[in-house]
Nucleic acid binder design. Structure first.
Lengths: 254, 254
DNA sequence: AAAACTGTTCCGTTCTCAAGAACGGGGGTT
DNA sequence: AACCCCCGTTCTTGAGAACGGAACAGTTTT
């Protein structure tokens, strides 16, 4: 499905490789980068100075970092998403109401992409941030979205990305995942029982378009100790589900 | 000051040009892009498919848009900024307290870059977003930062970027700007009296490092009708200034 | 003092990017 | 239905640029 470009631009790919490596390491020098990527020092230097000219990279004492130009492009593309526009205030309200961490995500190329997060008063500190990509199978957000995609698409995604085990509770079996998705469709909400992070539970609800296909999802995340019993099995699902419905309604009326 | 790369990577520059054009237009097709940039259709196509492979661009019915990959890189680089980390909760608190729109910004390459904004209950809807770049001379944020940079640097920046008139109140004279900066240094806060947007006033305070050089600024923005009299001239300046001090303190103790 | 780093400059070779034309598929229009 | 027009994509080829290697100029380390 994911078609390789027939005539890729290799120079651009090395530029992107440099950016990616820079992201992983936070800060790197020319020599370090050239070793890690098996490129000539001069090559890396030329790429970096070109990127620097356009503010995609900043240099600080012989060390290069990603520049804030990415924020500009990323923020812009997020802003023009209708989903973000209508969901953002609802997500903030839900965070205040539940006092927990609330996430908004969409999917792109078979990955779950976090768009926004709002911290409630008691919210746990998490490793999530806007722009973060995770697999779709290991989060409540992802499973909620998978549940409302065509089965063929789901299989495609599994084929491409696999079902990596994030914790001992992650669903790693294809059939088991399909059953879970069926349950999610019946109940309208998805649960994450420490499937991505030990000690963390989530409740998510999908946001679908008028054709019933998912365009995103919202979730509430909280430590297992605070999200159990009725709060986990009925109260929170109802709250999350109704917020998702409000967002869906606003989406269709604009 | 701003040195041109001696050996720029031209291919990378065309890639960046495509991305920039795509950002301005939100959505474009191959032919449209090739006309606007005076590039061959195949060239544009090859660049786009390469970018698409790496999720920097998404295709939807013959139309290309910026992908959310930029959010990933941008969010990442923002997160590792100490400034953002310590200022974010303070900015949120200030938004709740004042009920207005509160902004956090830094400067990069002589431009003002918005890092974060928090909406208070009454906050005006603005065209600002995280990642947005504006000139330093036409906002309270920018002037607060300029006031605590070396004079030579300020002149460099004026030289490079000019003093564009955003409204009829924008400071467009070099000497007048220098006087204003002197006043800001004395008072500790900067004002924006409809200098960037008609009807909008701002109060900003700089955030400086231990050497007294600005690394960022925070501001409160509100319609002129709500930000006048003592609230504009004394109350809000005090509030903003003290929040900036809290952020400065947290910055030095970590 | 010199050795070992760093980033940067420069040049020659090789690879490949860019352009242009041709292809194939959809939508309209006549 | 046959036509045309416009789209994105494929393919080829010459011009030009990216790449690696080597030498240079600073710092810091030994």
């Amino acid at each position: 499905m994911e078609q390789e470009p027939k005539y890729p631009v290799r120079t651009t790919e090395t530029t992107l490789a440099i950016l990616d490596t820079l992201k992983e390491a936070n800060e790197m020098g020319v020599t370090e980068l050239s070793n890690q990527l098996n490129l000539g020092k001069s090559t890396v230097h030329n790429h970096l100075s070109t990127l620097r000219k356009h503010d995609f990279v900043v240099k600080e004492d012989e060390q290069y970092r990603l520049g804030l130009r990415f924020l500009e492009l990323g923020g812009h593309s997020r802003n023009q998403m209708k989903l973000y526009e209508v969901a953002e205030p609802e997500v903030r309200a839900l965070a205040e109401e539940t006092e927990e961490m609330v996430n908004l995500a969409t999917h792109e190329h078979g990955k779950c992409v976090y768009l926004y997060r709002a911290k409630g008063a008691q919210a746990v500190e998490l490793d999530t941030y806007a722009g973060l990509r995770t697999g779709l199978h290991s989060t409540a957000l992802g499973k909620a979205m998978l549940a409302h995609l065509p089965e063929s698409r789901v299989d495609d995604i599994i084929e491409t990305n696999g079902l990596s085990a994030e914790t001992q509770h992650t669903i790693t079996d294809r059939d088991e995942l399909h059953e879970e998705l069926e349950t999610i469709r019946e109940r309208g909400v998805a649960f994450d029982r420490e499937e991505r992070l030990n000690g963390l539970r989530c409740v998510a609800a999908p946001i679908t378009d008028t054709d019933g296909r998912s365009i995103g999802a919202i979730s509430v995340a909280a430590p297992t100790g605070r999200l159990k019993g009725d709060r986990f099995s009925t109260d929170m699902p109802d709250t999350v589900h109704s917020t998702a419905n409000v967002i869906e309604l606003s989406m269709t009326h604009m």
